[in-house]
Amino acid sequence: MEIWRWIAARRLSLTFFLLGLIILLFILVPLLKMVFSSDPGILWDTLLQGEVRSAIWLTLYAALLATVVGLLLGVPLAYFLARHRFRGKRLVEALIDVPIVVPHTAAGIALLFVFGQDFFLGKAFHLMGIDFVSAVPGIIIAMLFVSVPFLVNSAKQGFERVDVRLEKVARTLGASPWQAFFRVSLPLAWRSIFSGSVMMWARGISEFGAVLILAYHPMIAPILVYERFEEYGLEYAQPVAVLLVLVCLLLFIGLRTIAYRGERA
């Protein structure tokens, strides 16, 4: 009887927990199945292949560079949006989310139009010795395009949570607008910017469609997985996929721990 009463008192929580459990399992089971059905020996052999290692490495650092560009250009935008009200602000905010809703192969085509050598921008970069098609810069801009909304939105929320009056007090204490930004707003929004950067990086690593259009080669890991699956089948794609997932998970867990530790301090 006790147990029934206990359940009855928690009907809503229990129902929602069970429904939630399904989605958690949906995420977890395929990943676990893939990881645990792989042979450690084959995994090790795969890791020793230069092609695989360089693909994973390229993925990580191209996504990291995209994130750095995002920080340099996206954080100022986030601050501007958090501090100013103007006509058409909603439109600008919607524009930032556009990369999330456009199919990424379409995004890749769009980028190709602008950064390919048929357009003046692509030509200008070409004169500076930077090419985007089938080159690392192309991977970076493809990742940047699809992942920058995560950073801008998170940073914007972070800045919005910083009381404007803190900056005002800083100004009365002799700080210029720049100093007020670097000594007050930025440190206070830091955690949101950091977690936005982690999300942006992670999104960049996982990008496939846009990169596929701009730069099939040099090959990033998601494309390598696809290629092996297409040409040799599931058996050959699996170890690369597993390695990619493991690397991502380790990084993600590590970075989340850092961000979380900051929160408790």
């Binding site: 005002k168 100004r171 009365t172 204490l173 002799g174 700080a175 210029s176």
Partner: peptide
Amino acid sequence: EPEKRGIGFVY
């Protein structure tokens, strides 16, 4: 500019 005025402020 406020930083050049030397005016203290308490909210």
